[in-house]
């Protein structure tokens, strides 16, 4: 219990999370038809995807590192980051479904972005299936690292490029870029940037915790 040190970025994460929850509900938002007050869900729906992407990006970077060096801690990092990434992705889907029910009238529409994101998450779920089916550590590490690179390479076109080539219910799809820097209402920028940073830090925090536990159990296994 004694000399427990809470790192500065964890404190920052907590402060920013509180700001985005309180500010997300109380600060002014644009008054728009159909969206009405549900526009505030943007503060919590969008950061989920940012966190997921950040973690998947870190995961693929560490997979490449693993392939270059062959050191198992890199492989561990790639797995844990992908796990937390999928977790945030599922949260993003769930919040999106609630929002879709309120504004588009159905929990799931045939919007290309929805379907493609679901496919993308399935690809990542298959990553864990692949890992679970291999016994040998180095074989598992190498195969799944290659698969992870493939998964990331297919995820980006699935969620960023393909939805833009057809009509989509998501704002900014079907031609124009989505979340635009100068397009978002100024009132919303304050909270949305904070929330993105806060949730990314939270995702990173959870990833490091899982990674430390994994490192510990690996050491424990070696001692036994």
């Amino acid at each position: 219990m004694k000399e427990y040190k809470l790192e500065w970025w964890k404190i920052l994460c907590i402060v920013l999370l509180y700001y985005s929850v309180v500010g997300g509900f109380l600060l002014p938002v644009p008054r728009l038809f159909i969206l009405n007050e549900s526009i505030r869900l943007f503060y919590f729906h969008f950061p989920m995807w940012c966190t997921m992407l950040l973690l998947f990006l870190l995961s693929v970077i560490y997979s490449v590192k693993y392939l270059r060096t062959g050191s198992l801690p890199h492989d561990d990092f790639a797995v844990e980051a992908a796990k937390v990434g999928v977790f945030f992705g599922v949260l993003g889907l769930a919040t999106g479904m609630v929002w879709a029910k309120a504004t588009w009238g159905a929990f799931w529409t045939n919007d290309p972005k929805l379907n493609n994101t679901a496919i993308g998450l399935m690809i990542y779920v298959a990553y864990f299936v692949l890992r679970g089916s291999l016994q040998d550590e180095t074989q598992r590490g190498r195969l799944s690292a290659v698969y992870n690179i493939f998964a990331f390479a297919i995820l980006i076109p699935l969620i960023f490029i393909l939805p833009r080539m057809t009509d989509s219910l998501h704002p900014g799809n079907g031609g124009n870029p989505g979340f635009r820097l100068f397009d978002t209402s100024h009132d919303m920028k304050l909270v949305i940037y904070t929330a993105v940073v806060a949730f990314c830090l939270l995702g990173w925090w959870i990833t490091t915790l899982l990674l430390r536990l994994k490192t510990y159990s690996r050491l424990q296994d070696e001692m036994d």
């Binding site: 219990m1 427990y4 809470l6 925090w205 915790l209 536990l213 510990y216």
Partner: peptide
């Protein structure tokens, strides 16, 4: 977090 740190 604290628990993990203690274990480490």
């Amino acid at each position: 977090d604290r628990k993990v740190q203690r274990i480490e």
